[in-house]
């Protein structure tokens, strides 16, 4: 327990350093209010904003000003949306989360299952097929694959829908059931593509983890005991193969808020990924920082989670 508290406390400097680096890098890009200044009516406002965000001071002081506000829920003002950043992000978060969670769960689940199946049936037709699928998924760029999917399944055969993933989604449909179906028609394609592209790593990883375990001496011991092969695999091999996989699982936590700016852009989904791309174009530093800070937090939490899970699944590892 003591160890856990220590570990959590250690996260704080990591978080601060990571956000500081991000902040300074964005500061190098230049003055975010440059665009607003073009409009003479806003001149006095711009000066006020510059003072609020500390643009009359050095970047480090500005960072501390920002982090203090950020932690209090004051995420700043989006130049692009002309609204509070917090509002903008919270609006987009549910969209990204619904894609991100579903796609991460599907990618990890199918990835791990397929990888383990491949390892058990090494060099079988299924194994080769899985390998082919993985290479397809890992080498296919999402902008190409996405556009092709768009062309075939939305334009040619209107099976799915795109766009309009904005607040107040389809106000014309009142029935909750119909609304869910419509929601699905919008999200199915990007989720499918992200799953296919994302599971490759899990297939490779769990396949090699399982293969390694299957060559262990204790698997031979388990067989020599007279256990049926199914028990050898399920009880002795799987449990050990899952140890490294669990770590990978925890580390993929950031993916749930949508690390898919390209796919979101292609399918015109107004999620955090697309927001990030748009903010980059508009040099909207407050939005960029908010988005990055969320990701940084999830990376850090994922790492902590990985360590904890590791100790839970492997009796050789203790948290001390």
């Amino acid at each position: 327990m003591n160890y856990l508290i220590k570990r959590v406390l250690q996260l704080i400097p990591t978080f601060l350093v990571a956000t500081l680096i991000a902040f300074i890098l964005f500061s190098l890009v230049g003055d975010p209010f440059e665009g607003l200044r073009q409009d003479p009516r806003l001149a006095s406002q711009v000066e006020r904003l510059r003072r609020i965000y500390g643009y009359d001071k050095d970047p480090i002081t500005r960072y501390f000003l920002w982090i203090k506000n950020f932690l209090q829920g004051e995420w700043g003002y989006s130049i692009m949306a002309k609204r509070a950043v917090f509002q903008v992000v919270m609006e987009r978060l549910p969209v990204s989360l619904s894609i991100g969670i579903v796609n991460t769960v599907l990618a990890t689940l199918f990835g791990i299952l397929l990888g383990i199946y491949s390892a058990i049936h090494l060099y079988s037709a299924a194994d080769y097929a899985a390998t082919a699928l993985v290479f397809f998924g890992m080498s296919m760029p999402s902008f190409f694959f996405g556009v092709m999917a768009l062309f075939f399944f939305v334009v040619t055969i209107p099976l799915f829908n795109v766009g309009l993933m904005t607040p107040g989604f389809h106000p014309d449909i009142a029935n909750l059931f119909d609304k869910t179906i419509e929601y699905g028609r919008h999200l199915a394609l990007p989720i499918f593509i992200l799953t296919l592209l994302g599971m490759g790593g899990f297939v490779r990883y769990s396949r090699s983890a399982m293969l390694e375990v299957l060559h262990m001496d204790y698997i031979r011991t388990a067989r020599a005991k007279g256990l049926p092969e199914s028990v050898v695999i399920r009880k002795h091999a799987l449990r050990n193969a899952l140890i490294p996989i669990v770590t990978l699982l925890a580390l993929s936590l950031p993916a749930i808020i949508g690390a898919a700016p390209i796919t979101e852009t292609i399918f015109s989904i107004n999620g955090l990924g697309k927001l990030y791309i748009d903010a980059l174009g508009a040099n909207d530093i407050m939005v960029l920082m908010a988005d990055l800070t969320l990701t940084i937090s999830l990376v850090i939490i994922g790492n902590l989670l990985a360590d904890i899970l590791y100790a839970v699944v492997d009796p050789r590892v203790t948290l001390e």
Binding site: D217, G226, L227, N240, D314
Partner: peptide, 22 residues
């Protein structure tokens, strides 16, 4: 399977790795 580990048992060289760690 009723012979293996029951009528005929086996022990191996590497006691360090022959038991399942979990």
């Amino acid at each position: 399977r009723h012979v293996r580990g029951n009528r005929i048992s086996m022990i191996f060289q590497e006691p360090m790795t022959a038991l399942n760690p979990v």
